[in-house]
Design a binder for these strands. Structure first.
Length: 574
RNA sequence: GCACUCGUAGCUCAAUUGGAUAGAGCGCUGCCCUCCGAAGGCAGAGGUUGUGGGUUCAAUUCCCGCCGAGUGCACCA
């Protein structure tokens, strides 16, 4: 029997053999889990699809396939149902053995990728000296999760935080540092708060004073031309900001292999533009340098501006230079950009341009929708500002603390603090990840922190419940039954879910959708709860007790692993 | 004007990428702790998947038209 513990490859292999014997299209050897127990555990639509090509009867074809199928080691005899579906139901003792073997497998049956790739993931990308807003939060959480999953599957992943450290905000901040009086009453503010305050003050002042805008622009120009004083201020600002970001990333459990900001590519921009002009990829137009896509179906009327008429470079220029650098530095098979949906046009243009430059790797914009307030508009504070990451994280922790304090007042202060962090931040991350990434979703503290429904606290609680039984009795820690007993329907249902977990993880990366993993975890927790209610463990007879403990053990490890792949921690008590 | 994304239960969202009777949570109506965490579980009510066509044995999913929402489109990032 093959090493893989997931049933799907076994079934597909057997189906493939049968298809070969009947001389049908080998790509039809596809099997999916059923969505309803009535139809067994797995189904294939192969006969339906093949019958269409051959213009024959699908049910007859299905019966012919079944006759050639050799899977009696692990499957009850398959049945033809409906229009020509073939339904498979795993044998009880096969299920029992396979699930038992998960006990010895630290990967819980999840195979390494057969074709590991080198992937650069670009995510988070906050702007230095500007408050991080909700868009960055989604990018950070989503990016980190994809990174963890890709690494777990054996890919070589480089995470690169493309900091906005060279933008127009520096004109404002430098002007503010030079000209705005220090405010005594705010002496206690942190350096980063001061930068944000200056940024906002200058933004406000500019709105009323057109002349000031020119002064601010000149400060930026001076910086970019290498002015000594501005350069020094810039360095301080970048260092301070990064130190602050690092604190927040540590809290979130996020880390980067690189954080090469826009400034890193500054020197490369002029030569890049020259080269693009020389190769005829870009053209001069109205004083600026532009890439056109005259033959592209949707981009023909959407020029890509890479140098302004005043000589300054743009976002697009830096992104092209960055792409080029990454290709030569890492030789990646893919670069993924975790960035909001509004920038889809930009990435389409960027990718099209890079193909013209001769880069033919996979370039993927992993877009996501907006986070909305209860009023269904982009989430803002009451005063209309963007919500800052720091305050959001703190509120999540504070709210979780209140709930824990209410439910478990006897926990020590230290325990409460630790649990509040795990639960609060977990809830925040999970609320984001469980959503289909393209949907704009309404942010709600009540919902994400609820113990009912598809939330992190619900999953964390399932984990806590599963661990609590092992605290009852230390001797329960070491047991490894070589096979299980799955006599109750709820046990079988749980066992199947445990086995199918391995099939879910690789699917997450197909379309960069951690919400598939969330759904699997939620179903796992639900099925576990049902099992835990219905099946007594400690009182059960020895063999049954061991089997049920094993199910509990595997469930808790799977919840922990799955949440970890989402960047979410689990508490032992809550 | 062009492009992108979306429209599913009263509300917030799913639907394993074209499969069988469209599922959860909240809210609503009832149940279940002399048993490991009730921070849980069970059952019920709730739907013409915005709308009209098309492709298919099969469409929430793919194609076209309309209606509605959000976002973006030459010197911000």
């Amino acid at each position: 029997m093959p090493l893989s513990q997931a049933p799907l490859p076994l079934l597909e292999h057997a189906l493939g053999e049968a298809i070969k014997k009947l001389d049908l299209d080998p790509s039809l050897a596809q099997i999916t889990p059923t969505n309803n127990q009535r139809f067994g555990d797995y189904q294939t639509n192969a006969a339906l699809i093949a019958a269409k090509e051959l213009k024959s009867n699908p049910r007859d074809l299905a019966n012919q396939l079944i006759a050639e199928l050799d899977l009696e080691d692990y499957c009850d005899p398959p049945e033809v149902a409906g229009a020509g579906f073939i339904n498979f139901r795993l044998k009880k003792n096969f299920l029992e053995q396979q699930v038992a073997s998960l006990l010895h497998d630290p990967r819980l049956g999840i195979p390494l990728s057969a074709s590991p790739r080198t992937i650069v993931i670009d995510f988070s990308s906050p702007n230095v000296a500007k408050p991080m807003h909700v868009g960055h939060i989604r990018s950070t959480i989503l990016g980190e999760s994809l990174l963890r999953i890709a690494r777990f599957l054996g890919h070589r992943v480089i995470s690169d935080n493309h900091l906005g450290d060279w933008g127009t905000q520096f004109g404002k901040v430098i002007y503010g540092l030079k000209n705005l009086p220090p405010q005594a009453e705010l002496a206690e503010e942190s350096p980063i708060e001061k930068l944000v305050r200056l940024y906002r003050q200058v933004t406000t002042l500019e709105r009323e004073d057109a002349q000031l805008r020119d002064v601010v622009r000149k400060e930026l120009l001076k910086l970019q031309q290498g002015d000594c004083e501005n350069r020094k201020l810039w360095e301080e600002v970048v260092t301070l900001s990064w130190r602050e970001f690092e604190k927040q990333y540590a809290l979130l459990g996020v880390s980067f292999d690189e954080h090469l900001g826009e400034s890193f590519y500054h020197e490369a921009l002029q030569p890049l533009v020259q080269r693009l002009l020389l190769q005829g990829i870009a053209k001069r137009s109205q004083g600026a340098v532009v890439i056109f896509f005259p033959h592209h179906p949707t981009l023909h009327d959407k020029p890509f501006l890479i140098q302004k008429s005043d000589g300054a470079f743009l976002y697009a220029t830096t992104d092209l230079a960055t792409l080029e650098y990454r290709v030569t530095r890492w030789h990646p098979d893919a670069i993924w950009y975790v960035c909001g949906a509004p920038q889809q046009l930009h990435f389409e243009q960027l990718f099209e341009s890079s193909r013209r430059l001769g880069f033919h790797l996979e370039l993927r914009h992993i877009a996501f929708g907006s986070i909305l307030g209860e009023d269904r508009k982009m989430m803002k504070t009451r005063s209309g500002d963007n919500i800052e990451l720091g305050s959001l994280l703190q509120e999540a922790i504070d709210r979780a603390w209140k709930i824990i304090d209410e439910k478990n007042p006897l926990f020590s202060q230290e325990e409460k603090k630790k649990i509040a962090q795990i639960v609060g931040l977990g809830a925040l991350k999970y609320a984001d990840l469980m959503q289909h990434r393209m949907t704009d979703y309404v942010f709600s503290w009540e919902k994400m922190l609820a113990f009912q429904g598809n939330t992190a606290p619900y999953l964390q609680n399932a984990y806590v419940r599963s661990r609590s039984i092992f605290r009852k009795d230390e001797s329960l820690q070491s047991f490894f039954p070589s096979t299980l007993l799955l006599d109750e329907e709820v046990e079988r249902t749980l066992a199947l879910q445990l086995l199918q977990f391995a099939e879910v993880i690789p699917n997450v990366l197909v379309d960069a959708r951690p919400n598939i993993l969330c759904l699997a975890l939620y179903e796992l927790a639900t099925k576990f709860h049902r099992f835990y209610e219905e099946c007594p463990i400690l009182k059960a007879e020895k063999k049954v007790k061991e089997s049920r403990l094993a199910l509990t053990e595997i469930t808790s490890r799977m919840l922990q692993l799955g949440l970890n792949l989402l960047g979410i921690d689990v508490p032992e008590k809550m």
